[in-house]
Amino acid sequence: MTFAWKSAGLTYNRYLAVASRAVRRSLKEGPRLQAERRGQQELRFAKWENGKQGEVKNLAEANNAAAIAQAESK
Rank of each mutant, 00 (worst) to 15 (best):
residue 9 G to I: 01
residue 42 E to M: 11
residue 66 A to I: 07
residue 22 A to Y: 05
residue 17 A to K: 01
residue 36 E to Q: 12
residue 60 A to K: 03
residue 34 Q to D: 10
residue 38 R to P: 00
residue 61 E to W: 08
residue 8 A to N: 12
residue 15 Y to D: 08
residue 73 S to C: 06
residue 30 G to R: 11
residue 12 Y to F: 14
residue 13 N to H: 10
residue 74 K to W: 04
residue 51 G to H: 02
residue 66 A to D: 14
residue 58 N to S: 11
residue 47 K to Q: 05
residue 24 R to C: 12
residue 45 F to C: 08
residue 57 K to N: 03
residue 64 N to W: 08
residue 54 G to W: 01
residue 35 A to W: 01
residue 1 M to L: 13
residue 42 E to I: 09
residue 60 A to E: 07
residue 15 Y to T: 02
residue 13 N to I: 06
residue 12 Y to G: 04
residue 11 T to P: 00
residue 60 A to R: 07
residue 48 W to T: 07
residue 70 Q to C: 00
residue 46 A to L: 09
residue 37 R to V: 15
residue 8 A to W: 04
residue 46 A to C: 14
residue 15 Y to P: 00
residue 41 Q to C: 11
residue 67 A to D: 10
residue 17 A to S: 12
residue 41 Q to V: 15
residue 10 L to D: 01
residue 48 W to D: 02
residue 12 Y to R: 12
residue 25 R to S: 08
residue 73 S to T: 13
residue 7 S to Y: 07
residue 52 K to W: 07
residue 34 Q to P: 01
residue 49 E to S: 12
residue 10 L to Q: 04
residue 68 I to V: 15
residue 67 A to H: 01
residue 11 T to Q: 11
residue 46 A to M: 11
residue 68 I to Q: 15
residue 43 L to G: 07
residue 71 A to F: 02
residue 38 R to N: 06
residue 41 Q to L: 14
residue 7 S to N: 11
residue 2 T to A: 14
residue 1 M to P: 09
residue 15 Y to G: 01
residue 48 W to H: 00
residue 73 S to G: 08
residue 23 V to Y: 06
residue 8 A to R: 13
residue 65 A to I: 08
residue 1 M to I: 12
